[in-house]
Design a binder for these strands. Sequence first.
DNA 1: TGGATAAATAGAAATGATTTCTATTTATAC
DNA 2: GTATAAATAGAAATCATTTCTATTTATCCA
Lengths: 140, 140
Amino acid sequence: MGMETYIQVLKNNRLKVTPRRKAIIGVFMKHGVRMGPYELYEKLKRKLPKLGLPTVYRILEELKDAGILVQSLAEDRRLRYALCACPDEHHHHFTCRKCKKVEEVEFCNFNGLSSFIEKNLNAKVESHNLQIEGLCARCR
Amino acid sequence: MGMETYIQVLKNNRLKVTPRRKAIIGVFMKHGVRMGPYELYEKLKRKLPKLGLPTVYRILEELKDAGILVQSLAEDRRLRYALCACPDEHHHHFTCRKCKKVEEVEFCNFNGLSSFIEKNLNAKVESHNLQIEGLCARCR
DNA sequence: TGGATAAATAGAAATGATTTCTATTTATAC
DNA sequence: GTATAAATAGAAATCATTTCTATTTATCCA
Ligand SMILES: [Mn+2]
Ligand SMILES: [Mn+2]
Ligand SMILES: [Zn+2]
Ligand SMILES: [Zn+2]
């Protein structure tokens, strides 16, 4: 997806198209990697010396709500975000342990899981969250 | 599993069998529910008025390392722990959104997932974490 | 094109879960 | 019982995240 598409998503969500928001999206587009608020802040403060860390936190949250980013918690329990190409289709993400690249995984055995639990526990599955880690093609 | 079994696990891990450790295990055995450090602290301070919150944090971590508890992060991003009956077998856990009961789920399509990713991304899957939520048989 | 307006932002400060530190207590081995 | 290392309480520190307020800015419209 190009920047123009993301700008349109911002507009659709009544978010102003600001230099800060474009810059943050730009960093994600450039690196294709999972990043935390402070990492983005560090990467951007050369270009935007007056950028504030709370602004980064807020923008990341807004971009998540707009469906541009997905949020996750890394093993250090801190916030991470990554671009998500198709937030409307149910899918998961694979993250490389070494380079942090995030790739879409269009595979999910939700039905099998759901019917197993339905049958064995007589419970109703309402959501599931799957985080997959490993080594990407380059890093393996 | 009974308390005696857990006491043996403590001994196997060179952890002393203290009233605090037994009390924390006891709360989990009694409730079968996912709990956070502060919740345990509150439940225990009648019986153990001198209990300190840092002690609860430390014991929970130790019990996790010993394989008695599993750690997770709830949606509020805070620590939660639950008993795990068979830490050696790969499996997942189902948590009831309403009553927080945790049940074992001996279902996992790891092979399918792994070979999908291997084929499509040419990546190597090293770990996955699946959290399943819904309503248990009683609460649904 | 410029002014009005609400949204966005910076910077300082607060928050609060979690961790660290140190003196004291306690479980365990002998 | 005593010695020992492990465990604990309580105070304090840490630090990621959030809140607050004054200022700036993107957007809309005359
Ligand atoms: Mn995605
Ligand atoms: Mn288990
Ligand atoms: Zn990689
Ligand atoms: Zn329930």
